[in-house]
Write a protein that binds this DNA or RNA. Structure first.
Lengths: 209, 209
DNA sequence: TTAACTTAAACAAACGTTTAATTAAAGAAA
DNA sequence: TTTCTTTAATTAAACGTTTGTTTAAGTTAA
């Protein structure tokens, strides 16, 4: 059972893991910052690794639902779906960038194969949903032939890059690196515009060569 | 002074950091795998963090030289330069992906501000070189107006994504995840083709809307 | 009264670093 | 070359912390 206290601990752990990494965060850090006794973490989750697994599961159930919903909507054109897809991912990642940092950067360092397989599963399933959108566009002769795996990779990679190289973009755009709110406010529309322009050129069947 | 032994330790540390992260790798691990005494790491580099700084410097001097050389070559058209740029980065990152993993994923977890600033500096300088290429193409009316920062980000992000989500791509392409050689052999041409197609559509002034 | 929750304290193991003793190498004087 | 001296390189052992986890006693709520 997941009480409010469980969730609170997960949220604190999330912020710490994102900031200092899995190994760089001690169970004492988490307990201290969450205001609970040290032993509660083991009592609640079993171990530090299982806490991580619980965090991943807690955060990952949400996205797939949104993707499946988007795919089912038959009133949308393929171009509409691409635009919504970009909006969805940019918002999701930049607004939960702490969790996203963990998923992309810190999880590979975890030695537990179980958790790694779990993540790959989640990514693969989300990828399949996006693939359907592109294939539908190709079937309707709106999109041209492209490398689907890497087209998805370019979208994900671009967004990830803006979270991983945040300090670089802050410097390029003259933003104070500690002002998260401002960074999101400036970057979210910028990334959306760029990705939509990029994919419009990339997918348009009129740009066939 | 950098002896062969220094370099050997750096290479061992690089592989371990890439695999298990900075905090996840102990100085004892490094010493053991490198076949040197534990105390030698402190004796040679001063501390674990300074070893990391030495590693970054050792690996980073190379790339900028290549970029500057590419930019000076006036016999190349902007499209040629884009193609060479992609070849350069894809080869560089996939062939040194261990180091690249450290740069992108593990370094943000290091608490030392000095090293972080060092990395941001390196990235910013490399970015400036790429920016010059795109601006030259725009000046010659070959490239259209695009978001330069994020266009570079899409290239870097795509390549990074293939190293960070290696296990996902292995599954999608039915490759044994442990066979690094095969992964590189299949992915390098695949990424190059995709990125060249992507940028051709993205940058071409004829696709102006 | 029973079960779930919470705690302070203790556990052994692993951590990065330092110490002090020893060996190897290099240079100068014989 | 040989011997002596000085510096550098290397080592095993120990340092004091911090790590994740467990224990056993205590509290709360049903």
């Amino acid at each position: 059972m997941m009480t409010d206290k469980h969730v609170h601990i997960l949220q604190v752990a999330e912020a710490l893991f994102a900031d200092k990494g899995f190994d760089g965060t001690s169970v004492r850090d988490i307990a201290g910052q969450a205001g609970v006794n040290l032993a509660m973490i083991s009592y609640y989750f079993g171990s530090k690794e299982k806490l991580m697994a619980a965090l991943v599961e807690y955060r990952s159930n949400y996205t797939r639902g949104l993707l499946e919903e988007l795919n089912k909507d038959e009133s949308l054109t393929p171009w509409d779906k691409i635009d919504r897809l970009i909006d969805l991912y940019v918002d999701k990642i930049l607004n939960n960038y702490k969790f996203h940092c963990i998923m992309t950067t810190h999880l590979p360092t975890i030695q537990s194969g179980d958790i790694k397989a779990m993540i790959t599963d989640i990514k693969a399933k989300n990828y399949e949903e996006v693939k359907k959108i592109i294939q539908e566009g190709q079937k309707k002769k709106v999109f041209r032939k492209v490398d689907i795996e890497l087209s998805v990779g370019s979208v994900m990679g671009t967004i990830t890059h803006t979270t991983l190289s945040k300090s670089l973009y802050c410097r390029l755009l003259n933003i104070d690196c500690n002002d998260d709110e401002l960074y999101r406010k400036k970057m979210i529309p910028k990334i959306k515009t760029h990705l939509k322009q990029l994919l419009r050129a990339h997918l348009d069947i009129k740009n066939q060569e």
